[in-house]
Write a protein that binds this DNA or RNA. Structure first.
Length: 278
DNA sequence: CATGACACCTGCTCGC
DNA sequence: TGCGAGCAGGTGTCAT
C-alpha cells in the first residue's frame, strides 16, 4: 500500500515521539511478519535500546537503534505505524507493540500481515539497501539517470513496459502503482510503452511528472484509497488530487476522452487516457 | 535476465 | 439478507 509519499509521512509523524526514547518492552503478537529473526530474539534485541533516528528508504521505515542495529518495517499493502498513548485501545490486527520510556507506545498494525519486519546489523542493512535502486527525490537524480535506471542493470530492460520498470524497486525505489499511473498520465506516456523506446525528451517529462506528483502527495500527507493511515492515524488527502487512478470512465482532465482501466500491464490496475498518452 | 503464475493474508464490495 | 467471486496501493519465489 504505502508508496514513497505515504512512508515519508509515516516516518515524519512517528519520529518526534520515538527519537531519544527507550524501548522498554516489546511484544511481537504476530510472528509471521518477522523476517530472519524469531519473536524472542527480536524482543530481546530491542528491549532497553534507545532510538537514535527514524528515516525512510523507498517504501521502508527505518528505525535506527543506539547499538547501530536497524529495525526496518515494510508496511506493504495494509500496514500502519503509529505512536500513541500506552493505554489506548488495541485490536487483533496489532502485530508489534513497544512501550516507550516516555509512557507512549509504538504500534505496528497490519490487517493482511503482508508486511515485513527485519532486524539488521549495519552490514545486513548495507546489503538490504543496495538491492534497492536510486530514489526519484534524491539529489542528482536526473533524466539520464532515470533512463539508465529504467533500462536496468546492464541496460537490458528495454522491452519491459515503462510502467513495470517504474515500479521495479531494483531500478527505481519508492514508486508503486498509484504514482506510476499518475506520473505516466502527467507525462503523456502510454504505460505499456517499452521502456527502451522512451526518448530523452520524454524522460525529462517523466522525471518532472514523477517528482512533482511525489512532492505534492507528501505535502498532502499521502493518498488514502482504503487502508493507508498517516503516523497520527488519519487518512491522507492526496486522493482528491489524483488525475487518473480510480477514475476509469470519467473524462481525461487534459483531453476529455474517457479514461480506461486495464490489467494488461503486469496484471495490475492500470489507468490511462487512450487519447493523450502515447 | 525477463516473464508469468502463484503465494502470502484478510476484508470489502458487488452481483446474483 | 446471504453467499461466493473477485479485487486491493506490494513483493518474493519458482518454473520457463
Amino acid at each position: 500500500m504505502p508508496e514513497l509519499p505515504e512512508v515519508e509521512t509515516i516516518a515524519n509523524d512517528i519520529r518526534p515521539g520515538l527519537v531519544g526514547s527507550t524501548l522498554e518492552s516489546v511484544r511481537v503478537l504476530r510472528a509471521d511478519v518477522l523476517r530472519g529473526v524469531t519473536a524472542r530474539r527480536f524482543e530481546r534485541a530491542l528491549r532497553g535500546r534507545r532510538v537514535a533516528a527514524v528515516g525512510r528508504r523507498a517504501k521502508h521505515v527505518v528505525i535506527e537503534l543506539d547499538d547501530e542495529h536497524r529495525v526496518v518495517i515494510q508496511p506493504r499493502m495494509t500496514g500502519s505505524l503509529h505512536v500513541s498513548a500506552a493505554n489506548g485501545a488495541s485490536d487483533r490486527y496489532v502485530v508489534i507493540a513497544a512501550d516507550l520510556s516516555t509512557g507512549r507506545r509504538l504500534v505496528f498494525r497490519d490487517v493482511r500481515r503482508l508486511g515485513a519486519v527485519h532486524l539488521l546489523t549495519p552490514a545486513a542493512w548495507r546489503r538490504y539497501t543496495e538491492r534497492l535502486g536510486p530514489e526519484p527525490l534524491e539529489r542528482g537524480f536526473t533524466a539520464p539517470r532515470l533512463l539508465a535506471a529504467l533500462a536496468g542493470r546492464g541496460g537490458r530492460g528495454g522491452r519491459l513496459a515503462v510502467k513495470k520498470a517504474l515500479m521495479d524497486q531494483r531500478r527505481i525505489a519508492g514508486v508503486g502503482n498509484i504514482y506510476a499511473n499518475e506520473a505516466l498520465w502527467s507525462a503523456g506516456l502510454d504505460p505499456s510503452r517499452p521502456a527502451g523506446t522512451i526518448t530523452s525528451a520524454e524522460a525529462r517529462r517523466l522525471l518532472r511528472a514523477l517528482v512533482a506528483v511525489l512532492r505534492r502527495s507528501i505535502r498532502g500527507r499521502g493518498t488514502t484509497v482504503r487502508d493507508y493511515r498517516t503516523g497520527t492515524g488519519e487518512a491522507g488527502t492526496f486522493q482528491s488530487r489524483l488525475k487518473v487512478y480510480g477514475r476509469a470512465g470519467r473524462p481525461c482532465r487534459r483531453c476529455g476522452r474517457r479514461l480506461v482501466l486495464t490489467h494488461a500491464v503486469d496484471a495490475r490496475a492500470t489507468y490511462f487516457c487512450p487519447g493523450c498518452q502515447r
